[in-house]
Simulated scan of single mutants.
Amino acid sequence: MRNFVENMALWADITDPQRHFETEVSVRAFKEPVLRYAIFAFSSRHMNRKDNSDATEALQHHNCCVQLLIPALSGPRDSITEDILAAVAILRQHEEMDGEDNLFHLTGTTHILNTVSTFGSSGGLGEAAAWLCLRQDIYISLTNQQPLRTNLHSFHHSDVFQRTDDFAWSSRMVFLLAKVVQSAFTDSALAHGVQQEIEEWNSNKPDTFHPVRSAPRGPELDRRFPTIWMLLPVHVIGIQYYHIAKILLALSEAPRAHSAYESLRHSRLVEKHVRHHLLTVLGLAQSNSKAENTLFTARHSLVACELSMIPRV
């Protein structure tokens, strides 16, 4: 439990000013076995991640949690509480550590969100878990080049679209990236309004989203990626998601070339554009060690670019 609170809860709470997974989930886990077993499964897997032979403990906790989840998820809709959603979201984090990701718990979280659409704007732990689940869905959509499973309408009434604090600003960029991903891997055309919203987000973002220190990459300094120090992890995630959105927008832009030369020129411009934003995504992850889950996002971005046949940096 202490390992979860001190080292892992921030991954879930990175855009949550009230830190529900650190402060609320850990407290509820003393009385709610489904949360307790989910935390123990994820935390023990994290502690023994370098030694797969010690995965038995994590598996035992995981199985206990699943046994509690089955009747709740098989019952009526009102039996799916925010504790259930949070537990499945934690098990999804546990599942992400598997070498072969079967997406079982991702299927569970998206099913819950699409069935109980109020979680995305319910406030409290339910909404905090919903935003975590959305980020988890975005990761898989990027790496597998497939549409989102989550219905974004669930989030339309969230108060992050009215609030002006930094956590709300980052959550809005998460939502904007989700909209880009939703269009990028489906046959639907990307609405021009989304591109405009992304640029407005970048133009109007608070000053706290500007780096406190930055330095360009350069072989003479033995820096493969730019140095970009951000104030807090929440600022890292907002800026990182902005640059990932710019990558997808560049890759989704249809060429208007009328000749082979123009087509080649367009491809080179796209490659240059993507390289710049990808280096920024990687630099943000490397420069801000406390925002550990941005390393996961950087890895997923690399996979997405590789699958899109963009040369790796």
Rank of each mutant, 00 (worst) to 15 (best):
S214E: 04
A215M: 06
A215R: 11
A215K: 05
P216H: 00
P216E: 01
R217I: 01
P219K: 13
P219L: 11
E220T: 04
L221D: 09
D222W: 08
D222S: 12
D222T: 08
R223I: 00
F225C: 00
P226A: 00
T227R: 15
W229L: 09
M230Q: 13
L232S: 11
L232C: 02
L232H: 11
L232V: 06
V234E: 10
V234F: 05
H235S: 09
V236A: 07
V236F: 03
I237C: 09
I237W: 08
G238K: 09
Q240P: 03
Q240S: 06
Q240E: 01
Y241G: 07
Y242G: 10
I244F: 02
I244Y: 04
A245T: 06
K246A: 10
I247A: 00
A250R: 14
L251F: 00
E253L: 14
A254D: 02
P255R: 02
R256A: 03
R256S: 13
R256K: 09
A257E: 12
S259H: 11
A260W: 08
Y261E: 11
S263T: 12
R265C: 10
R265G: 03
H266M: 01
S267G: 12
V270Q: 14
E271Y: 02
K272Q: 10
V274K: 12
V274G: 12
R275L: 14
R275K: 13
H277V: 01
H277C: 02
H277D: 08
L279C: 07
V281H: 15
L282K: 01
G283W: 07
G283V: 05
L284M: 02
A285V: 02
A285R: 05
Q286I: 00
S287F: 08
S289Y: 13
S289P: 06
K290D: 10
K290S: 08
N293F: 00
N293I: 01
N293R: 08
N293K: 07
T294K: 12
T294M: 13
L295R: 14
L295W: 07
L295S: 11
F296T: 15
T297L: 14
S301T: 15
S301R: 09
S301H: 14
L302H: 08
V303A: 04
V303Y: 07
A304D: 08
A304H: 12
A304N: 15
A304M: 15
